[in-house]
Every structure is written in structure tokens, then in C-alpha cells.
Simulated scan of single mutants.
Amino acid sequence: MRTFSCQCGNTLHFANTRCVSCGLMLGFLPDEKKLSAFTRHDAGSWRAAANGRLYRQCKNYSIHDVCNWMIPVEEQGELCVSCQLTRTIPNLDQPENRRLWFRMEQAKRRLLYTLFKLELPVVSRQKDPVQGLGFEFLEDQTEDEYGNELTVKNFVTTGHSAGIITLNLKEAEPSSRMKMREEMNEQYRTLLGHFRHESGHYYWDKLVRGSQWLTEFRQLFGDERLDYTYALQHYYEQGPAPDWHKVWVSAYASMHPWEDWAETWAHYLHMVDTLETASDFDFSVSSHQVINPLQQLPQSDESKNEAHFNQLFNDWCRLTAVLNALNRSMGLDDAYPFVISTIATDKLRFVHKVIGAAAVG
């Protein structure tokens, strides 16, 4: 994620809604993938300092203050391209839910920023009612037990089905997410990580299923036709494969080829977003300048694509070593608690190739 500049020269960050220096309202321009300052044009529109064009605020910005994306005035609808993808929002009669909803939308916008920068297809449910992308933020249903305790009646499972990504609202609550992480014996669990992982399932359907990539996918990840329900049950009863770190990017990736792909996809998005951030801050490690991988997209040319990936991966290895060392100095857990094996690297390289072909196609 890069930073941006206000017309007054102040540095702006992706989530900002107002410049702390000059006080101007800020909004993100999805069509240009940048944050801009705005001045009021009339009762219903704002003029962007970045390009002089007129926009209006997303309804979830102007009314609910959970968004900061703008809509070009010539476009129809009250919601921005990000909020249009949300099919179900939390019950706002519960005061805490507005804050959790904001966190959900913010993580979704970060995901979309990277997808847009990679020039990946993002097809809404409105355009494709059967396989289009949509998000549902749902809560566990509870009921009173003996009048003084709440028990979970229906538990919401975070997952993906035919383009619809469902997330349990509790994942936006750090204490609940940490509790789940410990119960699941996971090294890493973040809200943004969930969005990236589940988007991997969406893009497997769009880019790999039934495509020319399927044979290579099966050689690297395994046969996705294996019984998923059985694999899931076996994973939770027996745990991950003992040697998972030699083959998979995470323990959960060893559960089934689909999960292996989704975990690898999520790690690839972690890599390119974090490297863009480091590059934006002119970061270098032992005289090696970190290159922004989103400035030059993956290529269809095999040799150029290979060189691009090698640069990206080498920068990532150097950068994460520093990030982990810094966290340890602060008494924190490693920022990136993973060691990428040669086999897992080949899987990341495959994701890079698929994205390169999708971007140029």
C-alpha cells in the first residue's frame, strides 16, 4: 500500500478522510487508484484536487462514515464500487456493530486496492448474478439460556461459495480473533488475511478451473477432486501433515489442494502489498533497494515473468527478516512467522504466472 499527497503537500494514508494539515475532505478515487483532497462544488458533488473531476461521496461515507471512496458524478447508484460488493451488513441496532462493520469494509477496500493494482477481474454480483463477487458480514445467532447466559445457536463459518465470501463479524474483534487463533493453533490470523484467503477461492474458480492452468496446478498443488469434506474432517481430527513446512506455505494449506491454493494466493497478496509499502518509504536492506512489484505487473513473457518473480521473492525474504527482527526487539511476535520452502516457492511462482496472464488478458 502506497501513501499519497494532499494538495497542501501533507502525506496522506489510504484510510484517511480528512487532511490533518489543511483540513480538506479526502476520498479515494477507484478509477485512478489514488487518494485525493476535495473541495465542495455544490450540494451534491465535490471536485477532486487530483484530476479536477467531479465526484460524490459513497452513501456509506456520507451517512455511515464506514467508507472513504468516491463515485464519479456521471455514474449511477449511491454506493461506491467497493460497497456495491457488500450484500449483507451487520445489524446496526447493535451499537458495537458499526465499528466492526467499518473494520470489515476497510479490510475489503485494502484487498480491492491490490486486486485493482494487479488488474485482476473483479465482477460484481450485479453483472454476474451466478458467479459474481459478493461479501456477507454475518453474526452468530445467539439465544438466552436460563435467562442470564447467551449461547450460540447458529455459528457463522467464514468461507466462499460461488463468488460469495462470508465472514463472521467476530473476526473484526481482535480478542475473539486471537482466541480463535490460539484454539486453532495458528501462527497467523488477521482480518485482511481472511479476505485475501477467501478471494483466492474466488480466483481459483475464475482463473484456474477448467483452464489451461489446471494440469500444472494439479502437479504442484494436488488433485482438487479429492473429497473436500473428508479432507476437512481428517485435518481437524489428525492435524496437519507432520512435514507440512517442507511442502506447504502454512499448516492449513496441507488440508486440501483448494486450501493450498487459497493460502498461497493470500501469501502472494501479502507479499506484493507489503513490498509496495516498503518501496513507497524508499526502504532498502543491506544496500538492496526494495522494488515496488505493483509498478511493473507480472508479464506474459516467461523469462521476464521469471525475473520479475525472482526480484519480488528475494526482496520479500530480505524484508521479512528485518520485519521479524524489529518485532522481536519490541517484544512482539514475528510479523511473518513463516519459512517458505522450495516447493512452496514454486507454488507462489505459479500464482505469479496466473496473475500475469490474467492481467494481460
Rank of each mutant, 00 (worst) to 15 (best):
V354Y: 07
L29V: 09
E182M: 07
R209Y: 04
N314E: 15
C6P: 09
T158L: 03
G361E: 13
N60P: 02
R328N: 15
K170E: 12
P337S: 05
P90R: 06
F350W: 14
A359H: 14
T229V: 13
L297C: 09
V156H: 14
E224D: 14
L326A: 07
H197R: 02
E302W: 11
K206W: 00
R225T: 15
A359Y: 13
F350R: 13
D243V: 01
N16T: 05
Q295A: 08
Q289N: 04
T88K: 10
D301E: 13
L79I: 02
E143V: 15
D333L: 06
V152N: 01
S176G: 02
F135G: 10
L214S: 14
M184P: 03
S21G: 05
R181I: 01
Y113F: 15
T215G: 02
Y228L: 09
F309Y: 07
S62Y: 04
M180L: 08
D243F: 00
C6A: 12
A262W: 05
T86F: 08
S284P: 00
G222I: 00
V123Q: 08
Q289D: 07
Q94H: 09
R209V: 03
E143K: 15
F195H: 02
C58D: 04
G239F: 07
Q238T: 14
M330A: 10
A344T: 15
P298I: 05
P30C: 14
Y113H: 09
K246Y: 13
A162D: 03
Q311Y: 05
A359R: 15
L226S: 11
C6R: 12
F28P: 02
T88D: 10
V272Q: 12
